[in-house]
Design a protein around this nucleic acid. Structure first.
Length: 452
RNA sequence: GGCGGGUUAGCCAAGUGGUAAGGCGGGAGUCUGCAAAACUCCUAUCGUGAGUUCGAUUCUCACACCCGCCUCCA
């Protein structure tokens, strides 16, 4: 099993620290608004990775944080006049519901930043004691980049490089020793209202990066296996996490860093301005299912930009119908050869989670299987394999819809009309059933009613 | 300006130093009373230019366009 590690920029064989255990930390949302389809791609990727590890027999501990204190949240609190908890609970609850609708597995542990502040303070104290951080005149605490020579190893950039934007930009807001230094603790300000916690440096709130260091270490240990996030988090967020964590513990922080690419919507950067900004709820309101969204999000490799389109959703709907059709008929029909479905699927996924190739293997299998008559014993084997694979893809197995008695009566009536060569009547009945979303297939074994 | 990613058929999207998976859509058939489902065939010289090579879509170098990061955005 190989994964592309951002740290080394190469595909590496994955070997956990303590097999079969795997510690997995994935960056969760900042709950200041409903998540959008781009955010969801990241969480889908986390889910895929976690499912693949479990499929491969690893015992995964999956931790995903919820960031419930941050500038934009504070803005929301101020604008709405509602307490912090109320604002963050609203969006956190909606977020988890979105995950459910996409059939994303819940992380085993979902810590919230505001519940982990003592741990963050302890870590900051450790950093100050080790001369990796300093308290400024404005009562903020900053991390000193120059105290960590390896800073930049994840994002592969040189700090202090005059060509970087960071070096060019002037900061009037904060009292940092060096531009690239980042806040570990932000002193309370009037505009923060009630949002504040006591600390050895006075009231304030934690900086953004420290929460992930504190919470991941608390739940997974000082060195753990995998840390994920969107590619935008590589710098500065994850770079800063490394700096804080390794300076505080003196140990390597994360062994494999995996980052997913962003997506485009209808070929363009997603933006409210382009009218192509979608939350999951927007798509569901248009009649798409979570399953269809899931399919689209899994159809491209996670490290490539994905073009999310309405046409793509339609294509996903058709593709899923093809799968369902195959599976639903399987027990009645059944398998020549269950060729290398499993091995091809496994090989594709082992190669840095190549879902496109994995889906390709599935469809090639469907075509081969559809060509032949399948014995019942083989049908059972196929279904068992498919169910195993679906533990990873998470589309769910199709459920046969049982037609109600009145539909079945019409089906029989139509069949009688056909026997009597009364095709006008039989077509009428078919049209009538179609209006009730029931389709008919005339098979050698007789008519089959199916949901359409 | 720095770093990174991308550019494959109408759309989406894998992949390989020896002329390119899969899905969707479209066209033509088989089957069917007609359909549906399924199956068969057709639907790409892999952004542009040059180089390396017996041979490149795949390697190298330019160029173009797109995208991400470079001040807390997945």
């Amino acid at each position: 099993m190989k994964f592309f590690n951002t740290l080394t920029r190469t595909k590496e064989e994955f070997v956990p620290l303590k097999p079969p255990h795997v510690g997995l930390y994935t960056c969760g949302p900042t709950v200041y608004d409903f998540v959008h389809i781009g955010n969801l791609r990241a969480f889908m990727f986390d889910d895929l990775l976690r499912r693949w590890l479990e499929y491969r027999g690893f015992n995964v501990t999956h931790v995903m944080n919820i960031t419930d204190v941050e500038d934009r949240i504070i803005n929301k609190v101020r604008e709405s006049g509602k307490p912090l908890k109320e604002v963050t609970n609203l969006y956190a609850t909606a977020f988890l519901a979105d995950l459910d609708r996409l059939n994303v597995k819940r992380a085993h542990i979902i810590p919230r930043a505001t519940e982990a502040i003592p741990g963050m303070i302890a870590m900051i104290e450790k950093l100050i004691a080790g001369n990796h951080a300093y308290v400024s005149d404005d009562k903020c605490v900053y991390y000193s980049i120059k105290s960590f020579p390896e800073y930049g190893k994840l994002s592969h950039r040189q700090v202090g490089d005059q060509s970087t934007a960071v070096a060019r930009i002037k900061s009037d807001d904060y009292d940092k020793e060096e531009m690239a230094d980042f806040a570990l603790w932000k002193a309370w300000d009037e505009k923060d209202g009630d949002v504040k916690w006591d600390s050895p440096w006075g009231p304030g709130r934690p900086g953004w990066h420290i929460e992930c260091s504190a919470m991941s270490i608390q739940h997974l240990g000082e060195t753990f296996d995998i840390h994920c996030g969107g590619e935008d988090l590589v710098f500065p967020h994850h770079e800063d996490e490394i700096a804080q964590s390794e300076a505080a513990t003196g140990k390597p922080f994360v062994r494999y860093w995996l980052h997913n690419a962003h997506l485009l919507v209808e070929g363009k950067k997603m933006s409210k301005r382009f009218n192509n900004y979608y939350a999951l709820g927007d798509l569901l309101a248009k009649g798409w299912s979570g399953r269809e969204v899931r399919y689209v999000l899994l159809s491209a490799h996670y490290r490539d930009p994905l073009n999310f389109t309405m046409d793509g959703l339609q294509a996903a709907r058709s593709a899923l119908q093809r799968m369902d059709e195959f599976l639903l008929k399987l027990d009645a029909n059944p398998a020549g050869i269950v060729p290398d479905l499993q091995s091809r699927f496994d090989a594709a996924m082992d190669d840095d989670l190549n879902t496109s190739a994995a889906l390709g293997a599935l469809f090639e299998f469907i075509r081969e299987a559809n060509k032949r008559t399948i014995a019942a014993s083989e049908a059972a084997a196929i279904l068992a394999t498919w169910q195993r694979i679906d533990q990873v893809l998470g589309f769910g197995m199709p459920v046969k819809s049982e037609a109600p008695a009145e539909v079945l009566a019409l089906v029989e009536e139509r069949q009688a009309a056909r026997k009597a060569k009364n095709f006008k009547r039989s077509d009428e009945i078919r049209d009538q059933l179609a209006k009730q979303r029931w389709g008919i297939e005339d098979t050698p074994k007789g008519p089959r009613a199916k949901r359409i």
